[in-house]
């Protein structure tokens, strides 16, 4: 059995927990870095990325998050979570966790009045995913090992690089759990291959 954590410093934690549980998997809210050791995969939720970063620094989470990534455990960032995962941020000299080979631009669809819903085709997930974009970022540039999963009006809004999954929108705000299920599969596969390698 696998367990998936949701970084619970700030943001839409409850919704992700519900979505993970709807996929039949145990979910854990991660408030302290020690708790990362209990989980096989981690979701970085939507929220305010600057706030999450302050709290990550304050509680000395950063090294543990990087270590988590180094162990090959899957990580999934939605909106602010994608910003935390990105290796490059447009207009900023330093990334946050900086593990996924993408360049992300913050608030790139405008302010809240420009926030929107759209139906998206997400590769390997759904042809009709209800995507909710809220002051959303987008992926300006993706590295060569990054697989683009979805675009909206020519902009990359979902992508995967091996163990890392990121999207601009908020699957957790809908009752559609297909992207979460996709991530759950990534976590199961990673755990399986880790066990195989350990033998």
């Amino acid at each position: 059995m696998i367990k998936i954590g949701v970084l619970a410093l700030q943001g839409a934690v409850r919704e992700h927990i519900k979505s993970i549980e709807s996929c039949g998997v145990e979910a854990v809210a991660i408030k302290h870095k020690e708790e990362l050791q209990e989980v096989d995969g981690l979701i970085l939720p939507g929220g305010e990325s600057t706030t999450m970063r302050r709290l990550i620094d304050k509680y000395d989470f950063m090294d543990s998050l990087k270590e988590f990534a180094k162990e090959g455990k899957p990580m999934f960032g939605t909106c602010a979570g994608l910003i935390l995962l990105a290796k490059n941020l447009a207009g900023y000299s330093e990334p946050h966790i900086g593990v996924m080979d993408v360049t992300v631009e913050r608030n790139s669809f405008g302010r809240q009045v420009d926030s929107f819903e759209a139906e998206l085709a997400v590769k390997d997930v759904a042809s009709d995913f209800p995507a909710v974009f809220i002051r959303a970022p987008h992926i300006v540039e993706a590295g060569e090992n990054v697989e683009v999963l979805a675009k909206h009006e020519g902009r990359i809004v979902a992508a995967r690089e091996g163990q890392f999954l990121g999207c601009s929108f908020h699957p957790e705000l809908t009752d559609d759990h297909r992207i979460t299920a996709y991530f759950v599969d990534m976590v199961k596969e990673a755990k399986q291959s880790h066990l195989v390698n350990a033998e």
Binding site: Q10, G11, A12, E15, G46, T51, V113, F116, I134, R135
Partner: peptide, 20 residues
């Protein structure tokens, strides 16, 4: 593509949860 839906408006507040 639609703006100003309940989901978008309420969702924005959901993203503020746990914050000041």
């Amino acid at each position: 593509m639609v703006t100003g839906t309940d989901r978008v408006k309420r969702g924005m507040a959901e993203m503020q949860k746990g914050g000041v």
